[in-house]
């Protein structure tokens, strides 16, 4: 339990995927919160979604893995292939993400037609009139 700072750093640096996930997730969250432009907020939202997809994939990733198929009538040794389930789940998650993006872009277009701007500040000013 009394791992030194150096040990912790080593453990972290051996898992670059997870660091990338954290950076992507927090970056997306920051864009969602900090930017006033609605499209930029959507980009942030999409980044958050993508980071979670990345997380799932990274859990099942394996260096030099093959595909889970029957080879010459025999199944490939499970230790050799990458777990296909997270990949399939993320296919669904990508579809969900695209649907969300579609609905949100439709809303943004409607907002732009109504208020003539994509800047949240300008829209809020018009709402507060």
């Amino acid at each position: 339990m009394n791992a030194s700072l150096f040990d912790i750093l080593t453990i972290w640096l051996q898992r670059p995927n997870f660091i990338a996930f954290i950076i992507l997730f927090l970056w997306g969250l920051y864009i969602m919160i900090a930017h006033h432009n609605l499209i930029k907020k959507l980009i942030g939202m999409y980044l958050v979604q993508t980071s979670v997809i990345f997380f799932f994939i990274t859990v099942s990733a394996k260096a030099g893995a093959t595909v889970p198929i029957l080879l010459n009538g025999e199944s490939v040794d499970p230790a050799l292939y990458a777990n296909p389930l997270p990949h399939v789940l993320m296919l669904t998650a990508i579809v969900v993400g695209v649907a969300t993006l579609g609905v949100s872009l439709a809303l943004v277009v409607a907002i732009y037609r109504q208020y003539g701007s994509l800047d949240e500040e300008v829209i809020l000013k018009q709402l507060g009139e």
Partner: peptide, 14 residues
């Protein structure tokens, strides 16, 4: 309602 729906969408997706 469009603006409210947009906010709902952002938070709901998060």
């Amino acid at each position: 309602a469009l603006v409210s729906a947009f906010r709902y969408l952002i938070l709901g997706t998060l």
